[in-house]
Amino acid sequence: MRRTRRVSRTSVTRRVSRTPTRAKGAKGATGTTGAKARTASGTRRRAGNAVIATVTAVALCSGAWLLRNGTASHPPPQPSPAQAAPSRPGADHSAGTGPGTGPGTAALPPSPPDRVRIPAIGVDAPLMGLGLTPQGSLDVPPPGRKNLAGWYEAGTTPGERGTAIVAGHVDNKEGPAVFYELGALSRGRTIEVERRDGSVAVFTVHANEVYDAKDFPDEKVYGPAPRPELRVITCGGKYSKRTGYQGNVVVFAHLTAVR
């Protein structure tokens, strides 16, 4: 397990080094310096979103359970093509303006999230803040706590205008983890995020897609959004005993209610 994480962090460093050009156009950030800023300023906090895609895509995907148990284990479900965002020429799905995304509701002020619930797949988990390690990679939730997810606290808070990021393991060496069933989540289902200010932000899923790591669409997943957006990410795609999962499941959702 330790060996897998070392390899992952090396890969992360290489991919992050290619991110600044995209980040500058999307967020006004200039590489990892913007990603490390953890301030109350919305502009500086959101600067890290362009980096988080590649970091999460690598760090969460060792596939510890399948590596330990081989083909006898059941792989996690993967989203079907029917769950992808509807497409048309010129549609901007990264900004939540493509067809089929549905109406939203007004943005909330910033407030850290404490818990995420996805009733359709039985998720009810606490959230911890995720930052970056000294090497520049995402500090993922402890793999031993399988019912724990994290949110990127240098970025947008869920419910705030922009793109908020939640990530969690698909499994650990003991079995399925918090987002094992994420690939089965269908469009129209809801994701609830309890916030520290006492509100509950309710997001509606408008797409669920899987991507190979080598073709991960950073801008589509982590680009700026004109309304409150949420991305929930775990591992998925093809599986290799040598490298683990070779891609990511990404759920796209937007704020539709507040309780």
Rank of each mutant, 00 (worst) to 15 (best):
D114E: 15
T156I: 15
N147R: 12
G122K: 15
P119E: 10
S186P: 12
R145K: 13
L148E: 06
P143Y: 02
N147E: 14
S111M: 11
S186D: 14
Y152I: 02
R117G: 00
E174R: 02
V170H: 01
R187Q: 13
K173E: 05
R161K: 10
N172F: 08
A149H: 07
Y152L: 03
V170D: 00
A120Y: 02
P112C: 10
G183Y: 10
G144S: 14
I118H: 05
A149T: 04
P112K: 13
T190L: 01
P141N: 04
E181P: 15
I165D: 04
D171H: 07
G150T: 10
A120P: 00
T190R: 03
G155D: 08
R187D: 13
S137L: 05
R117S: 03
R115N: 05
I121G: 06
Y152D: 01
V123R: 10
G168C: 09
F179Y: 10
L138P: 01
P134W: 01
A120G: 02
D124H: 03
W151N: 02
L185C: 04
T163I: 02
G188E: 15
S186A: 13
L185A: 04
I121R: 14
N147S: 11
E160P: 07
K173V: 07
E181F: 15
G175D: 06
E160W: 13
D124N: 08
G129F: 01
G155Q: 11
S137V: 03
L148W: 11
A164K: 10
Y180W: 13
G129C: 07
L127H: 06
G136E: 00
T156C: 08
P143E: 01
D139S: 08
D124M: 09
P112T: 14
L127S: 08
P142W: 09
I165L: 09
G122H: 09
M128N: 10
P113H: 07
P158T: 08
G131T: 03
K146G: 15
T190W: 02
N172E: 05
P141A: 03
L130A: 04
E160A: 11
P112H: 13
L130T: 04
I121L: 15
I118S: 03
T156N: 09
A184L: 11
G188L: 15
V170Q: 03
G150R: 06
A125R: 09
V178E: 01
Y180V: 13
T163K: 00
A154D: 12
T156H: 11
L108C: 15
L185M: 05
P110I: 13
M128G: 07
D139E: 08
V140D: 05
P143N: 01
Q135A: 14
E160V: 06
G168A: 06
P158C: 14
P176D: 08
H169W: 02
P142E: 12
L108H: 14
A177Q: 15
P143L: 01
A154K: 07
E174Q: 00
R117H: 01
G175T: 07
A154R: 14
L127C: 09
A154E: 11
L127W: 05
L130I: 07
L182R: 06
G136Q: 00
A125F: 03
L108D: 10
P158D: 06
R145C: 03
R145P: 02
G144F: 07
G162V: 14
A167F: 04
V116L: 13
G122T: 12
P110L: 12
E174N: 00
E153I: 10
G129N: 06
V170P: 02
S186Y: 10
G150V: 08
L138E: 01
L130C: 06
